[in-house]
């Protein structure tokens, strides 16, 4: 599956380690949350970068003890109408997680902007749509009402803040 990061298709340096595979000594790997729990003793000192995939029913507090070691969190969209990961992403950002947050599963161009606004930074997508469709979809709405939902570096105006600054 192609990855979109920083507004373009990008290679995926991460290796997924399934629950029945041994954990390699080095390399940038991601595991399931169950594996993270059970093998934390080994994983906490993993030589490469460490990531985890978290079901969208997970409570954000559960991840708190791991956050310092993680540089990739993957949140799934089992259906594109299942919006739980929007809140979970937002919570993780509010809890201070600053590294890569990846959406996977049913990720469509029309949801890309909302995903970016709540804090997702990379996207595992289908190859059905060319790059320009993704780029366009993320830029459709350039002015938003919600405070604190404009992602860094995006050319998006936070309307209430802009009004206040003007008055």
């Amino acid at each position: 599956m192609p990855i979109i990061k920083d507004g373009a298709f990008a290679p995926d340096p991460w290796v997924a380690i399934t629950d029945d595979q041994p954990i390699p000594a080095t390399g940038d790997i991601w595991v399931s949350l169950a594996r993270l729990d059970s093998d934390w003793g080994t994983l906490c000192s993993h030589a490469g970068e460490l990531g985890v995939e978290v079901p969208n029913t997970t409570k954000a507090e559960k991840l708190k003890p791991y956050l310092g070691k993680l540089s990739l969190i993957l949140l799934p969209f089992p259906a594109y109408t299942d919006g739980r990961a929007y809140s979970l992403a937002r919570l993780l950002r509010e809890e201070g997680y600053i590294h890569d947050l990846r959406a996977r599963g049913n990720v469509l161009p029309d949801q890309l902007q909302f995903m970016k606004q709540v804090g997702f930074t990379s996207f595992e997508v289908t190859d059905r749509f060319p790059a320009e469709v993704w780029t366009k979809a993320a830029q459709h709405i350039s002015a938003v009402y919600q405070e604190g939902y404009t992602e860094p570096h995006a050319a998006r105006t936070a309307i209430w803040e802009a009004r206040r600054a003007r008055s």
């Binding site: 919006g83 929007y86 909302f114 606004q117 938003v144 009402y145 939902y149």
Partner: peptide, 14 residues
């Protein structure tokens, strides 16, 4: 109305 319009977190509610 403004706050809820295209709210990025609350547009795919149950």
């Amino acid at each position: 109305r403004q706050w809820s319009s295209l709210h990025p977190e609350f547009s795919y509610l149950p």
